[in-house]
């Protein structure tokens, strides 16, 4: 177990608890989708994992060490656990794409050759490595490109855990697909990912487990098919239901717990062709 939250309670002011006796075990290499209504504490959860909110009660453990204990090495922790905030393009300040990415690894012991190589590799991973784009300033990029650059700024540190707060906000269809491809790529390399999102279709396609939050608590922590199967539950908790599940339930198609679109079409076609042959 790489990351654990034990009985964590976080509040901003005395009254309201943003995270309430929160318990979570995160195993290495898994992709967790975090969903729930606005105000359920999702962003605060990510920020707490990242070291920004010392819990009033409970512990946040990374490789069995409490990250909020005085002696903990926060500097090297921040290299291993990277967070990409919502609308991350708000943090750009350089006029050069490479310099913007380098900001994160400036304080490491890499030689300048290694540094350059790392930046180039990262640009390749996010698809911004063509000569034309590299010449541009971060501010001249399109919305989708800016988002990928922000992702690159986090990936350059080769983190073990990647935290993403609504990475698809404001992106159009192609921008969203590009980010999904990059995340799937990173996942195969073994990075643990925790992603907050409102989009049940995307979560169903790429997450291994879904955490549903409400009022600072975990309501469910299960695989996508179990979380999303009950329409009423989804509606009550404001998390939406993936189209494949809604359709499968309506059309009485058995998806065998694989709710990806590919499987849905295959099973649907099979069922219809079978019917035709009767």
């Amino acid at each position: 177990m790489e990351l654990e939250l034990r009985n964590v309670t976080v509040s901003y002011s005395s009254a309201e608890k943003i995270l309430d006796n929160f318990n979570l075990e995160v195993n290495k290499g898994l992709f967790f989708g975090i969903t729930g209504k606005s105000g359920s504490g999702k962003t605060t959860l990510l920020e707490t994992i990242c070291g920004f909110h010392k819990p009033e009660m409970g512990q946040v453990l990374f490789n069995n060490q409490n990250i909020y204990e005085g002696k903990f090495d926060t500097v090297s922790f921040r290299k291993k656990v990277q967070m990409v905030f919502q609308f991350p393009e708000n943090q750009f300040f350089e006029t050069d794409i490479r310099k913007e990415i380098e900001f994160g690894i400036k304080n490491t012991t890499l030689s300048s050759e290694d540094l350059n190589r790392r930046v180039t590799e990262t640009l390749q991973t996010v698809g911004l490595n063509d000569n034309e784009t590299e010449e541009l300033s971060p501010f001249a990029l399109s919305g989708g490109q800016k988002r990928r650059l922000a992702l690159a700024c986090a990936l350059v540190l080769q983190p073990e855990i990647l935290l993403l707060d609504e990475p698809f906000s404001g992106l159009d269809n192609s921008g969203q697909n590009q980010i999904i491809k990059i995340l799937q790529n990173i996942k195969t390399k073994g990075t643990t990912i925790l992603m907050v999102s409102h989009d049940p279709n995307v979560l169903c396609e790429i997450a291994d487990r879904i955490i549903v939050m409400n009022d600072g608590r975990i309501i469910k922590n299960e695989i996508p098919p179990i979380v999303y199967s009950d329409k009423q539950f989804c509606s009550q908790l404001g998390i939406g239901q993936p189209d494949t599940i809604t359709a499968a339930n309506l059309l009485d198609v058995n998806l065998n717990n694989d709710f990806t679109y590919e499987n849905f079409i295959t099973k649907l076609a099979e069922k219809l062709l079978l019917k035709n042959n009767d």
Partner: peptide, 8 residues
């Protein structure tokens, strides 16, 4: 509606 959550 683009910056709102699903309920919004």
């Amino acid at each position: 509606g683009s910056m709102l959550d699903p309920n919004g």
